[in-house]
Design a protein around this nucleic acid. Sequence first.
DNA 1: ATAGGAATTGACAACGCTGTCAACAAGAAA
DNA 2: TTTCTTGTTGACAGCGTTGTCAATTCCTAT
Lengths: 347, 347
Amino acid sequence: MNRNNINKPATITDVARHAGVSIKTVSRVVNKEPNVSQATLDKVQTAIESLNYRPNMSARGLAAQRSFLITILYDTYLAHSSYTSNVQLGVLKHCNQAGYEVLIHPIEYDKATVSKRLEQHLKRTRPDGLIITPPVADAQNVHQVLNELGTPYVCLSPGGPQADNFVSIDDEKAAQDLCEYLLALGHSQFAVIVGHPDHIAMSAREKGIKKAMRAAGLPLGKHLQKIQGKNTFHSGVEATEKLLTQGNLPTAIIACNDEMAAGAIHVLHQHNIDVPSDVSVCGFDDAPIAEHTWPQLTTIRQPVHQMAFHAAELLVEKLAGNASPKSRIEFSSELIIRASSCAPKGL
Amino acid sequence: MNRNNINKPATITDVARHAGVSIKTVSRVVNKEPNVSQATLDKVQTAIESLNYRPNMSARGLAAQRSFLITILYDTYLAHSSYTSNVQLGVLKHCNQAGYEVLIHPIEYDKATVSKRLEQHLKRTRPDGLIITPPVADAQNVHQVLNELGTPYVCLSPGGPQADNFVSIDDEKAAQDLCEYLLALGHSQFAVIVGHPDHIAMSAREKGIKKAMRAAGLPLGKHLQKIQGKNTFHSGVEATEKLLTQGNLPTAIIACNDEMAAGAIHVLHQHNIDVPSDVSVCGFDDAPIAEHTWPQLTTIRQPVHQMAFHAAELLVEKLAGNASPKSRIEFSSELIIRASSCAPKGL
DNA sequence: ATAGGAATTGACAACGCTGTCAACAAGAAA
DNA sequence: TTTCTTGTTGACAGCGTTGTCAATTCCTAT
């Protein structure tokens, strides 16, 4: 192995010599520890500048028992979603400014094995903390492993009722809002394409819809068809095809995310069913695809980027030892009305 | 800072004691070094298993002067593209099995400052190698920095004529194929929505189209309108609107990627121009969006996932010191004919 | 048997940093 | 002034690995 690296990077020793202080003092400056006189601080900082010194992460990690690494853990299956890339960007934004590097670690989600895979990653890589998205975030055994190993983490999910360190929107309320909007337009025959069953947020959305319908006095049995989806465009296609074969076309379809809603529009288009005049279609998330469909999707906007940023912020605070006062945070969502919804025919 | 980590992970010393050998021998086993007897190897492996030992990356990194980290470097602007997520998955697939962790590092691409940002990352994080995508991969100064610091890397881009360590398809040839297909259908009035100008692959695609047209004896001045895009859906929308105001509607629009093609279809739809009977629209890449548009896009399929996997493979070999024989590899692409293209009207 | 060489193993010193603790300096209180 | 307190600094011992090199064992060919 030939290191053709000509200009070896400066070490802390070089800086110390250059500034005429001990390496420990340089270390203090680098780590922003208190009790360094202004004069020394200036000297050291000048030396750091002029040598263009950057601490060696491995050495730092070894000595301080930490890795300066934060892992984003998510389901391989969702790797292509705009949700995931938004999470990545939000987390990166905070982590990089806080001095952490970001590792991505998609795992093939499977209720039974997910915790084993996670444990392997933790033992091997030892990140200082993790940001976890659904459905991984919603698996009980994942939390067990994390707690046993004492690794801090924050989840992007509504979590259960007593869940801690979760960042989310109020999915139930948002879905309720969306459904109420459709009810106000005069809709009464609904179909809902629900998402991944292990995804707590997805169930919450379903609950919200039901709640709104019950509040409007509509018996669910007669007014709501439920079809299982898997969060993807393709599953939205399948679900809608199934719906069409059932023969009982609703006036409004609510898909629990935008990909599935786009799939629904696609199928309706194929069958010459007009959106929205024959059927209104609504999605959830305000992903880019919501603006790419024809007509554009009415949906719920979820500030994923901000939520991810905030989750990272929370995690970094935790790592610094500052137990944050609020450990469960809800962002607010917004109903975005576009062209895929209108009052039902004959009203 | 309280470490609530109860069961401290086993160290190499624990394994050595448990197996009754020296730590150096354990190290040999872990690193698959030669010259370890079968008996010792078994003993050590048993000990590793039973203690569930995983080497400490920081310590390994410090001692061996490497970080076991590979960075994927890309343009922030493209962070949401399916291209990027495909690259991530492809790279991860190989890296994880080769014992590397994958860091993501989007940088805001800007010709002038990109090399400074890169240098910062390299000094701070010291990844063992990088995988770089366009347009970052196509910036001259990026290569300079990398070579000065002696950090190995592989680019996913056709690169220049004498470029080394590049993995790509033959973009020019692929575009030529696509254009020839349209020519064979009878088209002669074209518009091309070109992509990011710093993107070598994009220019190659433009070249391929021109080449095919010239070969067909069509003077470019009269038969080809060129509009600038920026690789995004939105830029495809803008470009197409501009095209429409120019008043001279072609019979076929070729966008240099699928996002822009989807934008074009969107605008044509708004203007009640039928695709494909009024205008054929073709894209490039076979991104998921190509199947989500209505009608679905005729496009060129590029095996991004495989290319990324291969790029990672190449990089890892380089890191292992095996200078690979082929340092520039071309994958083959495929013309995917879908519903967005047909013979022009009146033929 | 016996020298010569190869295969196998271990002792020990890095690697670049942080934590601990002790030493010292500078004020503050007496 | 003396003593105590607080603030500032540095010496030194790790942190858990790998690289070097020497020691030992095991063959193979005389």
